[in-house]
């Protein structure tokens, strides 16, 4: 299912849409709260959007670990159904 899927690009597209930020500001090391202007509610909403797009469940304890763009890409890569 994940084969041929550009997860990184999709993650960035979702971030752009959810947080209303410029694509050029979305770097792997960018953190959602400090760099991309999300608040705690916005972060939860973002994670819900990842769950829906990639058909995965991200438990609350894992949500806390997803702080940067790269964290999200790595998490999704390792949990998406292959």
């Amino acid at each position: 299912m994940a084969e041929g899927r550009d997860i990184s690009a999709e993650v960035k597209r979702i971030i752009k849409e959810q947080l209303d930020v410029d694509e050029k500001d979305i770097k792997p090391e960018s953190t959602f709260i400090d760099d991309l202007g999300a608040d705690s509610l916005g972060l939860v909403e973002l994670v819900l959007a990842f769950e829906e797009a990639f058909e995965i469940d991200i438990p609350d304890e894992d949500t806390e670990k997803i702080r940067s763009v790269q964290d999200a890409i790595d998490y999704i890569n390792s949990h998406i159904k292959k």
Binding site: S40, L41, V44, E45, L48, E51, D57, D60
Partner: peptide, 10 residues
């Protein structure tokens, strides 16, 4: 319940 948005109440 885990899919309800944090923006629901606001």
């Amino acid at each position: 319940p885990s899919k309800v948005s944090p923006y629901f109440i606001p």
